[in-house]
Design a protein around this nucleic acid. Structure first.
Lengths: 188, 188
DNA sequence: GGCTAAGTCGAGGGTGCCCTCGAATTTTGT
DNA sequence: ACAAAATTCGAGGGCACCCTCGACTTAGCC
């Protein structure tokens, strides 16, 4: 399936690179919805060339985010290595949203249901896998409310995306209140 | 300032009414960003006539929402009448977001900083006044975490707006978790 | 009925974004 | 150095939305 197409011509490779870094910057600064024309301009390349290399916005997303989503695995690994189930779980949330807060584009990727690139989907699945384990552990240790689920985390993620967007200074406080509500001793 | 302009001609009054109800429905169903052309179409009135009556989108908002925001006062009054400070506070939040969940347009109005119509602003101020009292009461009763503020509620409102938008079945659960985190016994 | 002010209409101009396609240009292999 | 292949370019067509304006219609008054 994947045709091992002959290498790109020198100028094409250069332009592809320029487009990629332009898109990476603009996504991070302005989110996933930047006009493609802005990307082309910033890359100092014509709009036609942009479409030659990346026929759809999704192609940009697929090229840029899998690498960034690797950070998710790091965060997951770090949390899984933590022997304290509560600290592991809460730390995971902190790290996850800190990541989102740094990158408007990533924030969009994780908040939307949309992005369909298979590599993105699988990265999210891996992330959900880690989260699942962290949740189970914390529940079994009796420190996390027993009905907590991945679905709740998905909802939280969309809410956090919004909070990060409109008040980037307050997301930590907001999260800490929510997390407080998850502690098992709080139930009742 | 307010010129007591002579009464509208019959057809004009009729059209104004049609526009208002069309806008009210569309705002509630689709949110504040519906194309004005859709409102005109639904009202069976030309786009020119729409602009005659409501030169800006804000004019629609200003005409429609003050009435709906009256519900805020009811909710506030109900909560203030509740002798249990915790129940009053938590009930206020429940009622407020239930209101938002029923009306996509209202959800937008309360989530955005934008809408500048003076009547909207004052309704929100009144709402904030009630909330302030409820917070103070609950804090003084020792049931609400003492550092909780109106600013936190504003953040919550934006977060809830998002949750309501993309998972209308889950906002109650989400809110209940958050509120759990606010109980004073939960701190620590 | 007829006059006039008030109101209605919708074509059309403006903007911003999307995407395509053929002509012009550049790289690369010989 | 040259031709073929690959790539670039950007004008321009499409679409959705915004808003205006002058020609037409109608309500309301005598």
């Amino acid at each position: 399936m994947v045709t091992a197409s002959r290498p790109l011509r020198a100028d094409a490779a250069r332009n592809r690179e320029k487009l990629l870094t332009a898109a990476a910057h603009l996504f991070a600064e302005r989110g996933l919805d930047v006009p493609l024309e802005h990307i082309a301009r910033r890359a100092e390349v014509s709009i036609g060339t942009l479409y030659k290399h990346f026929p759809t916005r999704e192609d940009f997303v697929a090229a840029i985010f899998p690498e960034r989503l690797a950070a998710l695995d790091d965060i997951g690994a770090k949390a899984l290595a933590d022997p304290d189930p509560w600290h592991a779980f809460a730390g995971y949330l902190d790290d996850l949203y800190a990541l989102q807060a740094q990158d408007r584009g990533l924030n969009d990727v994780l908040a939307r249901d949309l992005p369909d690139a298979p590599e993105i989907v699988s990265a999210c699945h891996r992330g959900a896998g880690h989260a699942e384990i962290l949740i189970t552990r914390a529940v079994e240790a009796g420190v996390l409310r027993p009905d907590y689920s991945i679905a709740d985390m998905a909802t939280l993620t969309r809410a956090m995306a919004q909070v990060i967007r409109d008040s980037p200074e307050e997301w930590q406080r907001f999260l800490s209140i929510y997390v407080e509500g998850l502690k098992v001793n709080a139930t009742g």
